[in-house]
Amino acid sequence: MFAFFSRRLVQAVLVMLVISVIAFSIQDNLGDPLRELVGQSVSEAERQSLRNQMGLNDPFFVQYWRFFKKALLGDLGTSYFFKRPALDVILDKLPATLELVFGTTLIVILFSVPIGVFAAIYPKQWFLRLVMGMSIIGISIPVFLTAIMSIYIFSVELGWLPSFGRGETVELYGWTVGFLTRDGLMHLILPCTALSSIMLPLFIRLIRAEMMEVLESEYIRFAWAKGLTRRRIWFLHALKNTLLPVITVGGLQIGTLIAFTILTETVFQWPGMGFLFLEAVNRVDTPLIVAYLIVVGLIFVIANTIVDLIYGLVNPTVRLARSHPEGE
C-alpha cells in the first residue's frame, strides 16, 4: 500500500518538474524582460551590465533554480498587461472556471448514473434506445458547435437565456459565486449544458457497458438466487462494481475537461482562466502564460493523483500489479 502511494507521488512530482521546466523555457525564449523594463532608450553597455545584475546571462540551470525557488513561494512574475502578480490574476479567475466545472460535474453525475443503469437493465426499452442513439450523435458534435448552436437557438432566436458573461455574482468568503443569484444561474445554464453535452454521452455509454457486464457476472446471479430484492441487487451490488472503471475514465477526462473549458469559455466570453489564457497568448503576456501552465498543471496533477489513489484504495489489485497486465 505504502509503496503504491509513494510511487504515485514520485510520479506526480516528476511530471510537475517537467511542466515547470517547460514553462520556464517558454519564459526564457519568449520576450525580453529587460525591454519590458527599460524600453529602447538605454545603451548597449548599460543593457549588458543590467543583464548581468539581473542574472539573465547565467547558465540555464542557475536561472531555472532561481525560477523554481520563486515559484515554490508562489511568485510567478508580474503580468505585463495587468501590472499585477500573475498568480493573483489567475486566482481571481479561478472561481469562474471552477463554477463551470462544478455545474458540469453535477449535471453529468445526476444524469449519467440513472440513465446508464436503466439503459443496462432495460436494453430494449424505446426511450433508452433513443437516448443511446442520441449519445453517438452527441459524441460526434464538437463542444464549441453545441455551444454556438445553443446560443443561436436559446438566446438569439428565442431570447430566453443570456449568451455571454457571468451575470450578477455574490461575494462569499472572498470567492465570487454565481450560483446564488437568479441572474448568475441563468448565465450558467448554457455553458454548463454545452460542456456536459460531450461528457454526458461518454459516461452514459461507459456506465451502461460496465453495468451490462456486471449484471452477467456470477455474484449477481448468486444474489438473485439468494432472493434479494431487485432494487438491492441493481443499486447496491451491481452499481458498486460498475463505478470502479468509471473512476479511472473520469480521471482520464480531466485533461479533456480543461481543454473544453477553454473552448466553452471562448464561445461564451466566460471570464475564467481559459479565456484569460487565450487573451494572454494574443498579447504575448509571458508571465501570465507561464503562470497558467503552472497552475493548470498543478490542478491537473493533483486531481489525477487523487483519482489514482482513490482507485488504489477501492481496488486492491492495482496495488499488487507491479507491471502492466498482459493484453490490456
Partner: peptide
C-alpha cells in the same frame, strides 16, 4: 492523461506567441 486537445492548445499557443 494529458488530453490531445490540451497539449495541442498549449503547444500551438506558445508556438504562435514565439
Amino acid at each position: 492523461s494529458f488530453s490531445t486537445l490540451m497539449v495541442a492548445i498549449i503547444f500551438l499557443a506558445v508556438f504562435q506567441a514565439l
